[in-house]
């Protein structure tokens, strides 16, 4: 039995210690926001936060989590509605097929939890590991900019 702290809730799971976090989220806990894409840490559709830093949950064995907090898209909403970042993604209609979006939202959360005033270069560099095959990158970037403003900051243009 392994105890995991996910979205401020303790979960007891019956799984092998080397089981990837993603499998436990989806198969054992019905937290289905994070998606299985490549299983190799190459696409980012399984991105979640561990202690506010983005990780590929397909490559995180649950034995490594200990008391560290996992956050998924489910943890960003409450009874009043979606969190700031998901709301910005909705407002910008950033999803085409939507498969990458949960990962994109969590990576954006990771960025904005560090700074609400990133530069445009920092924003692009930070989001780069996550792939979108539909090509909605411009809307995804617009959504992160919108979320930064909604949090009282904003993305500073630094490119010529």
């Amino acid at each position: 039995m392994i105890t995991l702290k996910i979205n401020d809730t303790q979960h007891e799971v019956e799984a092998e210690p080397d089981t990837p976090l993603l499998y436990v989220l989806r198969n054992d806990l019905a937290l289905n926001a994070a998606k299985f894409g490549c299983g190799l840490g190459q696409c980012g559709s399984c991105t979640v936060l561990v202690d506010d830093r983005p990780v590929y949950s397909c490559l995180v064995p649950i034995s490594s989590l200990g008391t560290r907090q996992v956050r998924t898209v489910e943890g960003l909403a409450n009874a009043e509605g979606p969190g700031v970042v998901p709301a910005a993604f909705e407002a910008e209609q950033a999803a085409q097929c939507g498969y990458c979006i949960a990962g994109m939202i969590m990576r954006a959360e990771g960025l904005l939890s560090r700074t609400i005033t990133p530069t445009e270069s920092e924003l692009r560099q930070y989001m780069a590991p996550n792939l979108c095959r539909c090509g909605t990158h411009m809307r995804i970037l617009a959504a992160v900019r919108r979320a930064a403003v909604a949090m009282g900051g904003g993305v500073k243009e630094d490119r010529p």
Binding site: E16, P17, D18, G39, L59, V60, P61, S63, S64
Partner: peptide, 21 residues
């Protein structure tokens, strides 16, 4: 066994003998 679990969960999907890579 702890190192083995970390390797199996994080590294083996590419680096284990016989992995697709």
């Amino acid at each position: 066994p702890e190192g083995a679990a970390l390797f199996a969960g994080a590294c083996a999907s590419c680096h284990a003998p016989g992995a697709p890579m």
